[in-house]
Design a protein around this nucleic acid. Structure first.
Lengths: 485, 485
DNA sequence: ATGGATTTGTCCGTATGTATG
DNA sequence: TCATACATACGGACAAATCCA
């Protein structure tokens, strides 16, 4: 602790030998003094040499601290004369020294689930974080700062779009050029864009029932007529689609959510023909198409026909991580002029971070994505098998399973006097998180009420392989024991 | 090469011992045969064993090929009976061909500008890239991988929202709690969200004229009546706003774009009162409020009154870099229930990358943002002064300047017989990029036509300080020399 | 019609070359 | 370098469907 006179004021300057560099300590201290108004405007700071002597250190840290203060405008330099405080002390411009807000995240109250069968969960421990960090760092080092930090291509970085076109072709059988790829951070902005793009072509859209309700909601909010069409054993009912008169349709042919139905080739072609004949468009949601555990992945609907009228939606949330925020869609060529017009009109900018985009491009190019995908597919397959085995062991003939073989979830059906809601609550009380299929159904109110068949969506990504057995055992115990069946 | 009879048809099946697995060769061949219509619907395929014997291989590859065809719907299985072709041969569809698209990025043609006065440009060389990298790396190392990579808070990470609330309070005088902060990647998703939020409250919105056209466009597309209100010397015309009957209004009171007008306190209070009385909402766009070069920064409109009916829009595009993709808005408390309902309904997820959010939180907490902001303010002030001096020197009394003192641009006006468009083209031909103010004006078509007053927006962020003089000299030379004024 | 033989889809254990770490 | 695990392929077993004397 040393006493250093600055101008007329005696001040106390504490230098410790912590890990914080000397010049940073000096800089912080002086900034604090100036901004708090302790050092008045235009007062002269001690010279570099003098202060160094007083503190018993070299002149270098002093110079660095002064330079920093200079760059930020706290002080001004008069060459061969001295440094002078530039702060206007009467401005009550409090520095954000101590924030009144809590530093850490505020505690959220949420259940802790010992067994989490939520379908969006996954084990992210396997993500090649070190490689990602290295790729990120190399991106920042190898590109010029200005290039990295300025606005990017509103459609998504071109290099990444090339890689995605390549990836989608290779892994999903999607036929497209990089010009057709649009990158976004999240399904919502892309869906919203689609809903704007299609507006001139029609106002009614058919959706699968049951389905994930986001797409219907987005279109409904945009003023579309949303027409639910039942999903049969081989996908959306072609007959009802035809007679509905809908202009568009959303489907998930590779692994329908939540039923898990795979649309056979004949139905796919019929769908494409429907689009061709009516001038409609098909929105193909392909969330988990990469994850097929037996046989080869089923190629996308989009690639079945050259220049098909399909908008393909894919992403890396499942393959890598949702935190990267990279989704993409592949537009049919006929829609590209509309897209460019809209982009211009609305000053659209890419919602995905440019830094992440460039890192991901590298990741794809250097084969990390492919490698990680294979690894995850293997891990998930084991969990998938384990889950099925566990259900069979512990539920026996009380339960039926459907929608297996790919993706991150399957469906479990059982007959039970209690409602789906009650069963879900019961499970949660025992620390098991599981969704009933209720939220995916668009019902004419009273349809399912007569039956006592209950359906649940069981995700197997979030649990460790050797937790699955115990989780299902507890679930069976809790449900089958609740009422004598 | 082996001859294999399928049903009645003799077909030729070529099996080579390339690296392609047998079952894949089989699968491909059969898929091709079926989709080309050579094998008719409902015809029976040779049994697994029989085909295996004929081909002289084991049954496994046959089984695998059949399984794949089964999954894709080309064939159907009747257990213990046989496999049957499911193809409808009269649908003439081509299978996906190899699409040829260039792997590398396609060359874009774009002008090179020696002097770029575009307003969104900035010198990103000063960005503390090394510190950012370190912060990013520490984020990844210190947090558990699973936490980092799973879905984040749809509203934005809580820690970052705390830091932003703090930052906005200290640097912009915004009064809010972290609960009011909504994070997004880009103005558009946030504006879109606002336009949805406000729908129940009214259908007409007043906008400043001139202004940046994105906001009017977004609201117009959502079906709002957009009412342009002229910007006077002290901001948007209160009188016309009152009589317009608009439910909402968008303003940029700290540094109006493009005029640079600063709204005085009396007018701000009147605006707040207007909102209070009519039950309307004010959207405050505060793009460059942090950058005020003389006198004290002008606190935001939002913070003038507790619980004011103001939606505040801010971001880090200017302060740090647009590539990080972090924008935020601060909602008035009365709108929070609506927001949460909408968030739930549309399954909204945060459009800003979680990794970047967490890094930015660190950056804010550790004071890097503040330091960088001060430094940039200093640098930009020098450029600002330099630009004004240069214009005065080279244009003399031919030009008038307005909208100075903050932000990243000023306006230059001059009387000239050539149109703004022609002048812009002239400048571009000399390697100077400069925008006329035309695109910011919403005109009743013929308003400005009589006058020969021309207005341009000159951004000073993109040039180095010592390039400005030469750029303006060339601009003056090119414009003033074009026609004798 | 019928019962036994045969065919057939399906399932399972295992061997080998190869890629991964 | 070595160990592991996976993709591919093989041979065999089971039970249901089909066929036939």
């Amino acid at each position: 602790m040393k006493q250093v006179p600055v101008n007329q004021t005696e001040v106390t300057l504490l230098l410790d030998d912590s890990s914080v560099p000397l010049y940073v300590q000096l800089y912080r201290y002086m900034k604090q003094q100036i901004s708090a108004g302790h050092w008045l405007h235009a007062s002269r700071l001690p010279s570099v040499r003098r202060l160094a002597e007083l503190l018993g250190i070299s002149t270098t840290p002093i110079e660095m601290a002064y330079q920093q203060l200079l760059a930020e405008g706290f002080i001004a330099s008069k060459p061969r004369s001295g440094y002078f405080v530039q702060w206007l002390a009467d401005v009550p411009f409090a520095l954000p020294v101590e924030s009144a807000y809590p530093k850490g995240p505020i505690l959220k109250r949420h259940h802790y689930f010992k067994y989490d069968f939520h379908m969006s969960k996954n084990e992210y421990e396997y993500f090649p974080m070190t490689e990602w960090r290295k790729a990120y760092n190399r991106c920042l080092q190898e590109n010029s700062t200005a290039d990295m930090l300025f606005y990017g291509d509103p459609q998504g970085e071109e290099g990444l779009r090339c890689q995605i076109a390549n990836y989608a072709k290779h892994f999903r059988g999607v036929a497209c050029t990089p010009e057709q790829v649009i990158i976004g951070s999240d399904p919502f902005p892309l869906l919203d864009l689609i809903s704007r793009l299609l507006l001139p072509y029609g106002k009614s859209i058919a959706v699968e029932n049951p389905c994930y309700p986001q797409q219907p909601e987005v279109f409904r909010q945009k003023g579309y007529d949303v027409i639910p069409i039942p999903v049969l054993e081989d996908g959306i009912s072609q007959h009802e689609l035809q007679s509905s008169g809908a202009a568009f349709v959303t489907v998930s042919p590779s692994h329908q959510f939540p039923t898990g139905v795979i649309m056979p080739i004949s139905r796919r072609l019929a769908l494409l023909q429907w689009a061709q004949e009516t001038g409609g468009f098909i929105i193909e949601d392909d969330a988990d198409g990469e994850f097929r555990y037996y046989g080869r992945p089923i190629p996308s609907l989009q690639g079945l026909m050259p220049d098909s009228r399909v908008i393909y939606l894919g992403g890396f949330s499942q393959v890598l991580s949702p935190a990267l925020g990279v989704k993409y869609m592949i537009l049919p060529k006929v829609l590209l002029p509309d897209y460019h017009r809209l982009k211009f009109q609305l000053f659209l900018d890419c919602t995905a971070s440019k830094l992440n985009q460039m890192t991901l491009e590298r990741f794809l190019r250097e084969g990390y994505v492919e490698r990680h995908l294979r690894k995850m597919r293997m891990i998930l397959r084991r969990k998938h098998d384990r889950l099925i085995g566990s259900i069979q062991r512990h539920f026996g003939e009380h339960a039926q399973i459907s929608g297996t073989g790919s993706g991150f979830h399957l469906m479990l059906h059982l007959n039970h006097p209690l409602s789906e809601e009650d069963l879900q609550t019961l499970a949660e009380a025992r620390g098991i998180r599981v969704s009933s299929a209720a939220y995916t159904r668009m019902l004419p109110a009273n349809e399912q009420s007569g039956s006592d068949r209950r359906s649940f969506i069981l995700g197997f990504g979030g649990l460790k392989e050797d937790e699955i057995e115990a989780g299902i055992e507890r679930l069976a115990d809790c449900w089958l024991g609740a009422v004598s069946l």
